[in-house]
């Protein structure tokens, strides 16, 4: 039978920054084709297909309870594969090759990580699990 794709609603207007993304108006309905844990979801909106930031979407049925995973305060060891300089005040600035602990793998691709006493958001696409092959 047909694969039933989840339908989400855009919660704000989004203008694409790269070719393979989708422009969205707040209220647009999209079908979710693929959820990438880096926070980019591949969606279909009418006849258009492209990548959309998960942070701009909420489930059509149950808008308030998202399927966010639970935080893991013990922390999981990850290594940064790219440096990133914080833009928002709740983000961390880290160099490439730093070992940090991932506390919360948020669906929007901005995981909460801890380095010593500091915690903040960091792009999950710049992290790989310690021991994972590159």
């Amino acid at each position: 039978g047909p694969i039933i794709l989840e339908t989400y609603r855009a919660i704000a207007d989004y203008s694409k920054c790269t070719k393979y993304e989708l422009d969205l108006q707040a209220g647009d309905h999209v079908e979710i084709v693929e959820k990438n844990d880096n926070g980019w979801w591949f969606c279909q909106c009418e006849s258009r297909r492209g990548w959309v930031p998960a942070s701009y979407l909420e489930p059509l049925e149950s808008p308030d309870e998202t399927e966010e995973p639970e935080p893991n305060y013990e922390g999981e060891l990850y290594i940064t594969t790219n440096s990133y300089t914080a833009v928002e005040d709740d983000e961390l600035t880290l160099e490439e090759g730093e070992t940090i602990e991932v506390i919360h793998k948020l669906l929007d691709g901005w995981w909460v990580v801890r380095k010593g006493e500091e915690t903040g958001h960091y792009p999950s696409m710049f992290l790989r699990a310690k021991g994972e092959k590159l």
Binding site: Y14, Y20, N38, S55, W110, M125
Partner: peptide, 22 residues
């Protein structure tokens, strides 16, 4: 190919949404 996600991190949640969720 189109199935390759963008190489840059996605934007943070729109500010008003973040306030609502936290």
């Amino acid at each position: 190919s189109i199935k390759q996600p963008p190489k840059n991190p996605p934007p943070r949640p729109p500010v008003d949404v973040r306030r609502k969720r936290t």
